[in-house]
Every structure is written in C-alpha cells, then in structure tokens.
Design a binder for these strands. Structure first.
Length: 591
RNA sequence: GCGCCCGUAGCUCAGCUGGAUAGAGUGUUUGACUACGAAUCAAAAGGUCAGGGGUUCGAAUCCCUUCGGGCGCACCA
C-alpha cells in the first residue's frame, strides 16, 4: 500500500461519511506541482460539490473535519477554488521507503495489468538486410514498453512478424545467388539496379558455396529460387537477431507471414467476417485527391470496416479474385486473437500512418469488440556527429547499421535516447552529445547518480559491518531521524509506482526516462547540501543511527534508479571511470 | 480534397489524461570545491503555450476554425 493509496482510502471514507452513494471516479490525490502547496492535494471538493449541492470550499471544510484524525496527515488547508492541501507527517512516507528496500529491483512492480495477455509487435524488419538507424527507435520503444507492461502486471508477448512472403525476399534470393556466383570466382561487376547492393550478402554467397558447392551454378532461377531464398532469409534473420541482442532485445515469438498465407489463415479470417455478415460486393468511390486517369468503378469484395469507425469499406479481394494486399495483415491479426490476446500493440514508423484505421476494424470484428489494436507511430531519426549528418557507410550499402551505432556510442546511450522522448517527433541522435560526460547527457547524469550512491554505500562499510548494511537491515532502520533535507528525495522515490502506473496506462515509456532524471537530480541536490553544511552529509562519524537512516535512503535511491533503468534496459553502473580520471590515478600511482 | 500527428523560453524538449503563479536541460548572467566522486550544486533572467472562438468553477490539455510544418490516403508488396 503506497502512501497515495492510503490517503486516497482515508479520503474515500471521509467522503462516504458525508454521502456514501456519490461517484468518486474523478477524485484524485496527487502531489501538487508547487511543493509549497503541501505534499498532497485533492480536487475532491471541487469535483463533488455540484452533486452534493454544496459550494466547494464548504464541502472541503467538511472533508477536512473527517480527515483531521489521520495519523499520516500533519496539517490540512483549503486553497484556491477548493483544493484540499495536505502536509504529511515524515512518518507517512516510511512504509514506502521500507517497501522499496524490501522489494529491491522489483520496487514499483504493480498488478494493474492483472495478467491480461498483451501482444507487442515491434521491429518486424524485412529479412533482407541488417538492422539500421531507421529501425532502432521503434525497436527500443517497443522493447521498453514490453518491460514496462510486464512491470505493471501484464502478460506480454514480444513478437516479431517476419515478412518472408513478399517480393523483397525474392529480390534477396536473386542477390544472394549473384553473390554466390561471385564467391565461386565469377566477376559480377556492379550489383544491378533493383537488387540489394550491401556487402553483407557476400557472406551469404560464401556460405551457400560451403554448403552446396556448385549445385546452383548455371541453373534456371525456378530451380534455385526457393532453396536460396530459404537459406538467405534464415541467414538474415540470424543476423538481425544478433544485431538486436547488441541492444538487449530478444523477442519471444516469431511469426512468419508465409505460414499465415499458406496455412489457410486468410480463408478462415475471411470466412469469419463473412459469417458475421460483414462482407458484401460493392463499388468504391474513386480515390480522392489524386488524379486518376485509369480509374473505373468495379464491383469488389468489401469488408464493412465503416461499421467500426473506418471512413470507408475496404476491399479484401482484387477484381481477379485474389487477396488484396492488406489480407495477410488481417489474417495475422486474426491469428493473434486466436492466440488469446486482448490487446495488440504495434510499433510502426510514421510512414505507415493509417494502419490502425485499416486493421483495427477487423480486430474489433474478430473479437466482437473485446480486443483492441493500438499502433504507436514513431518519427524519423537523424544521425549526427557534431551537428552534421553522419555519412552513410558504403560497406553496408548506404545505411548506418545498428552495429555501427553500438560500436560508436554503446547500447545504453542508444536505448536511453531512442526511448527518451515522445515517439511523435523527429529525433536527432548526435553521436557527440550522446557520449558527452556531463550533465546535458542524461544517460551519463543518471548513471553517475547511481554510481555516486554506490560510492557512498561503499564508504559506509568503513563505519558499519556488511551485516548492518544489507537491505533487510536497512529496512528496519529508524527513519524518523531524517529531516527536511531528505524530504524531497523521499517524495521523489515514493512516486515510482505511480510513474509506472501512469506510463503503463498511457503506453508511454518515455516517462520513465524523465522520471529517472528527476531522481538523479534530487539525489545530486541532496548530496550537495552536505557540502555547505557538514551536518547534512550522509556519513556522520559520531552519529551512527542518523548515518544508518541516511544510508537507507541512499540505498533506496540506488534501488529506485536501478529498478527504473531496468525497465529502460539501461545498465545501472556502480562505478564510472573516465579516461581522464584513470590517467590521473595512474600518474599518482606511478609518481 | 479527406484523415492522422505536430506547433510550448534563443535552442532541445517535459507538462501527471481538465487543476492553482506553464516546468526541466542547454545557452546567457552570478555564486559555491581543505568533498562521502565539483563529471556536481545553488540563484537570476528568459513565455500572448502559433492566432481566433467555444465548452466550465478551471483549458497548453477537450470541441470548432484559421495559419504553418510532417505523414498517410487504389485492386500497390
């Protein structure tokens, strides 16, 4: 039970005392933006005033009477139009801090998801080349969202949809065959227009030689296309998975488009819609806003997606009776629903706008409106160095590969920056800024704060035995010795479960990145108070109980940071050593 | 033409799903190291939340509209 829930419960009973029937849905208990308004604030009086036939300030007065008795509340006041501001006792927060120390890395875990089956589909890059800069953002946001939803108590499947049925994989096969001929000594010259130019297919050609020798030389395409395609696709998928593992992304489910297309799922999906009476033959209006020279009205097999909010019905079959191009995606979502998911989240680039509108109606139809599809679109990423666009790498065929990015700045920086803001906007990813060891680099700033916590705790062992500093031991420490200087730190830490809840319900992992900076900032501020005033330092030689209380809070800070960074997939380092620092130490040691 | 997203401090961005005097960082100005890591901290200055209208106790947030930017819009894969 967090302090927020405790106070909310007390408020609810206070309200019930006045009127037990009233709807309290809109009542909130939150820390006010301005700390001078107190620790917590509620809008209850303003929200309920009308239905209870009182003016807000009058109602607030009555609620305050009821809340007076709370042992968690130190003082109450009515403010502005009818806010009730509460100042809490120091003690009110201790349960949360102790909980943090007990929970460790699990701190902040919730059960708001109640085990609901969620499918998050992300990356889903075509298996025709390596992961590159354009793919990374959605990959990281998706993966972090998975972590977040798991933290909030959802049952999450991390899914990769594997487009191995389109024409691109045939192009891949043709390119691989060309590389294969090259590997056997043929001079293939420049890669022709329309095939994949990257060098990464050379090793595929070589690998085919090693497995099959000259078997596919001088053969008709019809003979080699399928086996080479299978081989090349497998090879690409292995490569992509290795690339993803560089930034700690590992999917749990891989679904093949080819399976969906070939195992009858499309027919089942179509028939399901037909049985629901949602299929008819009709004619679409001409496409708007485009000059159509060859358009003519044609009766088509249509799905009544307009019943589910789409602006027009969608053709599922072409005029020749074959499936329309959206049908595999529809079949795929039919499959997801059959697997029991009630929430499907899909991470796509902004250039896929309209996907939710197109596929969402079928999800609603298949599930009788019990399942939902949510698409998160992310903007483009520009990779820069010192503010200048990074040159494309020739080696990989005019793309910046994920592998190169990891080599350049490391996985932590990539993850932090790629998920660190709302997905909507365009993102400039500047190699130089991302590596900077200073405050304007949040990755560094946060990791530094965590390392500082660890440093303090290391020093703590000079005053205490290890046994006295275990999390269990610290959880039993008398926190009432903490004072005003620590209050801000405490307030920030106990907010973590709320942040998880808010971020998870909004599907917005970037909030975690902002929170983690808030924690770091509070900690660095707290730390610095000890510089001006020695009595505010963490370690006070002649006051062990106070020191223990502070160490408990330092430890709670480290735990909270670690817990949040864990969701982000960023390492919580215990020590940071820059080259400069190391050099200094080496010089000291040598001199 | 229709739909979606965006417009917040000089710059880069938050803004808790409708709350109080709109916040950080950076940049500018000014202070603080005989330290448990100054790789930091504290303070000042900086705003017509693109413009206009509406909804209500209350709007950056919701609705309408104008302007400006991005993306999508066929039986295409």
């Amino acid at each position: 039970m967090t302090i927020f829930k405790t106070i909310m419960a007390e408020l609810e009973s206070a309200i019930a005392h006045i009127d037990s029937q009233v709807n309290i849905e809109k009542v909130t208990v939150e820390p006010p933006r301005d700390p001078s308004h107190g620790d917590l604030s509620t809008n209850a009086a303003m929200v309920l005033a009308k239905t209870l036939g009182m003016n807000p300030r009058e109602l607030a007065g009555k609620l305050i009477e009821q809340l007076q008795g709370s042992e968690n509340i130190e003082s109450l006041e009515i403010a502005g139009p009818g806010f009730i501001n509460m100042r809490l006792t120091g003690k009110a927060y201790f349960t949360d801090i102790k909980q943090c120390l007990k929970d460790g890395i699990e701190y902040g875990a919730l059960n708001i998801g109640k085990g609901e089956k969620v499918n998050v589909e992300y990356v889903s890059v075509n298996p025709t080349g390596p992961m590159h800069a354009g793919h990374v953002r959605g990959a990281v946001i998706g993966d972090t969202l998975c972590n977040l939803l798991e933290k909030a108590g959802y049952d999450v499947a991390r899914e990769y949809y594997f487009n191995d049925a389109g024409t691109q994989v045939d192009v891949l096969a043709r390119t691989a065959h060309l590389r294969y001929r090259e590997a056997l000594g043929e001079d293939i010259g420049e890669i022709p227009e329309g095939l994949y130019p990257g060098d990464y297919l050379k090793e595929v050609g070589q690998a085919i030689v090693e497995r099959d020798g000259e078997k596919w030389l001088n053969k008709e395409e019809a003979e080699w296309l399928v086996p080479i395609r299978t081989f090349a696709v497998d090879h690409m998928m292995t490569m992509i998975r290795q690339d993803l593992s560089l930034i700690n992304i590992e999917h749990t489910v891989f679904t093949n488009e080819r399976d969906i297309v070939e195992n009858g799922t499309l027919e089942k999906a179509f028939n399901t819609l037909d049985d629901l009476g949602l299929i008819y033959t009709g004619t679409l209006p001409p496409p708007r806003g485009k000059e159509m020279t060859d358009w003519e009205p044609v009766p088509l097999t249509l799905f009544r997606s307009s019943h589910f909010g789409d602006d027009q019905d969608r053709p599922l079959k072409k005029r020749d009776g074959t499936w329309a191009y959206i049908m595999p995606d529809i079949g795929y979502h039919y499959d997801k629903i059959k697997r029991g998911f009630t929430l499907m989240i899909n991470l796509l680039g902004k250039d896929h706008g309209g996907y939710e509108e197109r596929i969402g109606p079928t999800v609603a139809a298949f599930s009788k409106e019990k399942a939902k599809l949510k698409v998160i679109y992310n903007g483009m990423v520009k990779v820069l160095k010192d503010g200048v666009a990074v040159k494309f790498s020739k080696r990989s065929g005019n793309i910046i590969t994920l592998r190169e990015m990891v080599e350049e700045v490391g996985a932590d920086a990539i993850r932090f920056f790629m998920m660190g803001r709302t997905p909507d906007s365009e993102l400039e990813f500047d190699y130089s800024k991302v590596q900077e060891a200073s405050k304007d680099n949040p990755v560094f700033y946060v990791q530094y704060a965590h390392a500082r916590c660890c440093s303090v705790l290391r020093h703590g062992t000079e005053m205490f035995s290890e046994k006295e500093l275990t999390d269990d031991a610290l959880a039993k420490v008398d926190l009432s010795l903490l004072g005003e200087a620590e209050k801000e730190m405490i307030r920030v830490l106990v907010n973590w479960p709320r942040i998880v809840e808010q971020a998870a319900t909004a599907f917005e992992p970037h909030r975690i990145a902002f929170y983690v900076q808030e924690v770091a900032s509070a900690f660095n501020g707290w730390w610095s108070k000890g510089r001006g005033d020695a009595t505010l330092r963490f370690l006070i030689e002649d006051n062990k109980p106070l020191t223990l209380a502070r160490l408990a809070l330092v430890r709670a800070t480290a735990i909270t940071l670690a817990s949040a960074l864990d969701v982000m997939g960023v390492k919580a380092v215990e020590e940071m050593r820059s080259d400069a620092l190391e050099e200094e130490e080496n010089n000291a040691a040598n001199g």
